[in-house]
Simulated scan of single mutants.
Amino acid sequence: MISLIQILLVLIVLINLGFLFYFIRDLAHYWGDVMSEPATTWALPFSSFIIFLLSTFGISDFAISTALYPKVHWTSIKKLPGTLNTQCVVPVAAMALSYITAITVDIKTLAICIIAAVIGAYIGPRFVVKLPVAIIKKFITAGLIIAALMILAGKLNWIPSNGTATSLSGWKLILTAVLLFIYGALNNIGIGSYALTMATVYAMGLNPSAAFPIMMGAATFSVSTSSIQFIKLQDYSRKITLFTSTFGVLGVLVAVFFVKSLDTAMLQWLVIIVLVYSAVSMIWSMRKPSEA
Rank of each mutant, 00 (worst) to 15 (best):
I51P: 10
G82C: 10
D61Y: 04
T225G: 11
A93M: 05
P208W: 07
L168W: 12
A63D: 09
T56R: 10
T75L: 06
S161D: 01
L11R: 12
L267W: 06
A219K: 03
G163K: 10
T83Q: 05
I174Q: 12
S226H: 02
V13Q: 09
A210D: 11
Q234F: 06
F52G: 01
A117V: 02
K239R: 14
L80V: 10
G190N: 02
A279V: 06
L242Q: 01
T83F: 04
I159S: 00
A211G: 15
E37M: 07
L270Y: 15
F243A: 15
A292T: 14
I151M: 06
L179M: 11
A195F: 06
I24P: 09
N16Q: 01
L168C: 12
Q229F: 06
A43W: 13
V274A: 14
A94K: 05
T244L: 07
M282F: 09
V280K: 05
T241H: 10
I51A: 08
H73S: 14
K260R: 15
W42E: 07
L250D: 13
D235C: 06
C113L: 08
Y277K: 00
S48V: 08
T246R: 06
I2M: 15
M215D: 03
W42P: 00
T241D: 06
P208D: 07
F181G: 04
L44P: 11
L253K: 09
I273N: 09
I119C: 12
S167T: 11
G32N: 15
V274L: 15
T164N: 10
S261T: 15
M1K: 11
Y22L: 14
S278Y: 12
F139S: 12
S48D: 13
S169I: 00
N188T: 01
F212T: 11
K130V: 03
